[in-house]
Amino acid sequence: MKFFRRIRQKLITEKKISNYLLYAFGEIILVVIGILIALAINNSNQKRIIREKEQVYLIGLKNEFQTSKSKLQRLIEVNYSNFEGAKKIVEYISDKNKQPDESEFSELLYNTFAFDIAFNPNNSLLNEMINSGSLKDISNPILKTYLTTWISTLEDIAKQENDLGIQREKVLDMFRKESNSIRTIFDLTDVSGKELGLPPGKNNNSNLNLLNSKEFENNILIFILTTRATESTHYNPLMEELDAILEIIDEEIKG
């Protein structure tokens, strides 16, 4: 800087005003170029930091969505098993020449209606990103859209699962009546002893009379319809969305 200062002083002393102005203009240009270079370096560093942050998020999101996919796969299997079990019950209702014994019917009822259906994905990191505003660090616009709408998609799934749960409860309510027996199902599937530590019941009612009940058949049919809708219009599209999200994440993660 002393060097440039001496040049300016010399030009002023020698009254070379035009040369001085030209020099001053050049010096301003050098300062501006220096500022632009500094800004470019700073912007480059900021972009690098954001990209490194994004990679950390992408790896975490991949782990979360892979876990969620495994949970959904298992849930689809359970839902399909319930669907097939309910269809088997309707077959027995329709064909009076092909009837199960009490033990077989109890196994079928237990396996079809014992387990509730609820998708519980891993969303810890995604929720943190949404709450902190870090979704803006995701550079892929398609992935960002998927992540932004993911929570609302889960809300739709939960509504469908709630409807399915209501239909399941309507079937189970029939076993709370005096003429039917949950205890018969528990005893014949060994739930009483192994799961609950209860002694066998005495004089348990048979549940085979339900195969002649129109109310029972109606409830089973609606359950079948709701189970099918849960798979075809909710779980299967959700699985496709999960696959799409994981595919994009894999593409965005640096090797």
Rank of each mutant, 00 (worst) to 15 (best):
S134T: 09
S134V: 04
L135I: 05
L135M: 13
K136C: 01
K136F: 11
D137Q: 15
D137E: 14
D137N: 15
D137I: 12
I138M: 07
I138D: 02
S139W: 03
S139K: 15
S139H: 09
N140Q: 12
N140S: 10
P141Q: 12
I142P: 01
L143S: 05
L143K: 07
K144G: 00
Y146K: 10
Y146D: 03
Y146F: 14
Y146L: 05
T148P: 01
T148N: 09
T148H: 06
T149E: 05
S152V: 08
E155R: 13
E155F: 11
D156L: 11
I157M: 14
I157P: 00
I157D: 06
K159A: 10
E161C: 02
E161Y: 03
N162Q: 10
N162Y: 09
D163W: 07
D163C: 04
L164A: 04
L164P: 00
L164W: 07
L164N: 11
G165H: 05
I166M: 08
I166V: 11
Q167S: 15
Q167V: 04
Q167T: 14
Q167N: 12
E169A: 07
E169I: 06
E169F: 02
L172F: 08
L172G: 07
R176S: 13
K177Y: 06
E178N: 06
S179G: 00
S179R: 14
N180S: 09
S181P: 01
S181H: 04
I182M: 15
I182L: 14
T184C: 12
F186G: 07
F186Q: 14
D187V: 07
D187A: 07
D187Y: 01
L188P: 01
L188W: 02
T189F: 00
D190T: 12
V191M: 13
S192N: 15
K194G: 04
K194Y: 13
K194E: 13
E195K: 15
L196C: 05
L196T: 03
G197D: 03
G197C: 10
L198K: 07
P199S: 11
P200C: 00
K202E: 14
K202G: 05
K202V: 14
K202F: 08
N203G: 08
N207M: 09
N207S: 05
L208S: 08
L208P: 10
L210R: 12
L211W: 02
N212K: 14
S213P: 04
K214H: 05
K214W: 00
E215D: 10
E215I: 15
E215C: 06
E217G: 03
N218C: 01
N218E: 05
N218K: 13
N219W: 04
L221E: 12
I222S: 11
F223P: 01
I224K: 05
I224F: 02
T226H: 06
T226S: 11
